[in-house]
């Protein structure tokens, strides 16, 4: 299973980015291969509008099963994620990626 995170860095101890559309990085963890890959999304700051769908489209390319984020995506992005069949968990703000993953494992995060 592949799990995606919205983050401010590319490591397990990086801080989560609570924003979805304008997140700085996307981290993807494959819990079978134990591989952690990342995507630098910082160029999104050049987009005046439509950051949500654009990031969602990028996320789709990584084909994750689950997304863990902070505030949750806005309406447009949410419809892309739904279409893509990605399950969203929110509430992972102000913590490291590692903590967010543990919270998800312990069923503490709220599913949308």
């Amino acid at each position: 299973m592949k799990i995606a995170f919205t983050t401010k860095g590319i490591y397990w101890d990086s801080v989560m980015d609570s924003r979805f559309g304008r997140t700085e990085y996307i981290l993807v963890y494959d819990d079978e291969t134990k591989e952690l890959t990342n995507f630098d999304n910082r160029s999104i700051s050049n987009e005046a509008h439509g950051a949500g769908p654009k990031t969602a489209q990028k996320l789709y390319e990584f084909n994750p099963d689950i997304l863990i984020t902070g505030n949750g995506p806005g309406g447009n992005a949410a419809s892309v994620l739904k279409q893509a069949g990605i399950k969203v968990f929110i509430g992972a703000s102000e913590m490291s990626v590692k903590e967010a993953y543990e919270k998800y494992k312990n069923n503490v995060l709220e599913g949308l």
């Binding site: 769908p53 489209q57 447009n76 419809s79 892309v80 279409q83 893509a84």
Partner: peptide, 14 residues
């Protein structure tokens, strides 16, 4: 305006 995106074999309009 990112109002049209291609998602796999689908086109989505916002």
């Amino acid at each position: 305006f990112h109002a049209v995106i291609q998602l796999g074999t689908k086109i989505m309009v916002f």
